[in-house]
Design a protein around this nucleic acid. Structure first.
Lengths: 240, 240
DNA sequence: GAGTGGTCTAGACCACCCC
DNA sequence: GGGTGGTCTAGACCACTCC
């Protein structure tokens, strides 16, 4: 199970092993895990290394510890929308729909003051403006407009916009998206929104604004979305 | 700064010390911290203990690490709604309003099948049903109905319902609320909702359903809220 | 008292960054 | 090459739970 000659850290190997046991059902919610000292001896690793693996799993919500009693498998997290920081594509798949895209705008424009403020850049700096209709099983679900600093994220193409923006940013540019803030409000569809979403003028919609940030707080993008309220519920999980 | 004779763990003392430096502005976003080894020597503690403090602060979003370069102060988290798991009272204070309450129902009822399902108890088991109008600066902002298992949380009174439910649960019953899931949707106010919120019949509202859980996954409560959409935006922060 | 997790030490070597 | 964080060891003692 644990390979000391692997370049993969020992604590990470143990972490994945335990995660596997939980996901396979070999460990069920409420079950006690073998004590830390037992793992250490069994795999001939230090207890601190076992603790590092356990601590990670506790932070991720797989386990919980009770002092003096032991370490236990946590209740399965309910219909988890992956802590919230998901792309539209991931979100729709998790809900059992087939996601789709219709690109309706892909331009580089000078930043307006609102965009510049959100992205913490100067006015008139170049930004990508990408407007897409988001489909679920072929039906319009949302209207999404992304603003991304062209000086920070280079080499975006229509091709990429039709596939995975996040994938491109994280894999090809080696930038890690770390956090996001969202503001959600209810309102009524404007004429243009109604037309693109194929809903009635004035029908209820949810406006969602999302700002995403790198680990050092640099804004990566700023997204305005309009979801049709008759088909979309926003789900979020939180830990204290 | 670090007191070895204190019963407070060393890593925690260091953590609070650094957090203080950041909040006082003695350390600014982007600043590099002294290296781990320097802290270890300065306070005569082990490097592993320093790392434990740093790791916590990284997880809490105060710091970030770059291998080979150092540890840095993260950008200030934007208008943070405290990771989301806040009470109405905390939420309104953070937004600069004076929160208020108007209790309109406080009963013990037998659980309906919906309530039983959400709280994972049996049908007809006793539950508290607490209905309140939530005010901001004296104006109705939301309608909130809590369902709490009377067998799990004992001794609730109208008095407590008018103050702090969470406070009572966490302090007096020694139960830690660990996580929550929320579902948010847009709709239109029913006649009754409109009347209680003093808005027009059919005006846009946000329905928010929240389920809260203990660390082992036991459901603590189940809350249905109706917020008036003209005055309320839902804000949420997420980490990947 | 035995067993559990919580804290802590004093080292070690590795991987990565920058000069 | 020197400095940084990343991983890891083999112990130690403490606090808490349960019998």
């Amino acid at each position: 199970m644990i390979n000391k000659n692997s370049p993969i850290p020992l604590y990470y190997q143990l972490e994945e092993h335990i995660k596997g046991l939980i996901e396979n059902g070999e460990l069920s919610p409420g079950d006690a895990l073998p004590p830390e000292r037992e793992y250490a001896e069994k795999y001939q690793i230090s207890r601190m290394t076992v603790r590092q693996a356990f601590t990670q799993l506790v932070n991720e919500g797989y386990l919980y510890r009770l002092q003096g009693k032991g370490t236990f498998v946590a209740e399965r997290k309910i219909e988890q929308p992956l802590q919230g920081l998901t792309s539209f594509t991931e979100d729709m798949k998790a809900r059992g729909f087939t996601p789709g895209n219709k690109l309706i705008k892909f331009e580089i424009i000078p930043a307006t003051s609102q965009i510049a403020g959100q992205l913490k850049i100067s006015e008139y700096e170049p930004v990508y403006e990408i407007k897409r209709i988001r489909l679920a099983d072929g039906v319009p679900m949302a209207l999404e407009t992304n603003y991304i600093s062209a000086n920070l994220i280079k080499g975006l193409t229509e091709q990429i916009a039709n596939q995975s923006l996040y994938g491109h940013i994280e894999e090809h540019l080696n930038l890690r998206i770390e956090s996001a803030s969202q503001v959600i409000e209810s309102s009524s569809a404007s004429q243009n929104e109604a037309k693109l979403l194929k809903i009635a003028n004035g029908a209820p919609v949810m406006h969602i604004q999302r700002n995403t940030y790198l680990h050092d707080g640099t804004p990566v993008e700023f997204v305005k979305s309009v979801y049709r309220a008759d088909r979309y519920k926003f789900m979020i999980q939180m830990k204290r």
